[in-house]
């Protein structure tokens, strides 16, 4: 059902955790859907230095969270804003169709964290 890449990120998720005094924090999803993703950012000179995540959710939710952290690290804020749920899913060689609504929210969580960062630094 899942691609090898999804299973890799699911079983060895990258960047799990929290960042203390993060520059931006974003959370999306909700319990009734069964997926909640929380993303923490550390930003310096407009460049994302570090990303960490915490996720409650299925295999796809965990894998997309892990993938989005890898994709975002090292990017400028503007570059990171170009990432979409679709590009995250593509980077994992695709997700099963049923997972596209609920579990593919990682880029949304990243954007929320960026929004939160911008509010702090406005």
């Amino acid at each position: 059902m899942y691609t090898d890449k999804v299973m890799d990120h699911f079983s060895n998720p990258r960047n799990v955790g929290e960042i203390e005094n993060a520059d931006g924090v974003g959370e999306v999803g909700n319990a009734s859907c069964g997926d909640i993703m929380k993303i923490y950012l550390r930003v310096e000179d407009n460049v994302i230095q570090d990303v960490k995540f915490k996720t409650f959710g299925c295999g796809a939710a965990i894998a997309t969270s892990s993938m989005v952290t890898e994709m975002a690290i090292g990017k400028t804020i503007d570059e990171a804003l170009v990432l979409t749920n679709q590009t995250v899913a593509e980077a994992l060689d695709g997700l099963p169709p049923a997972k596209m609504h609920c579990s593919n929210l990682a880029a949304d969580a990243l954007h929320e964290a960026i929004k939160n960062y911008k509010e702090h630094n406005a």
Partner: peptide, 11 residues
């Protein structure tokens, strides 16, 4: 508590 079933089944 706190975790989702499919993730558990995959593990």
């Amino acid at each position: 508590a706190y975790i989702e079933g499919e993730a558990l089944l995959l593990h």
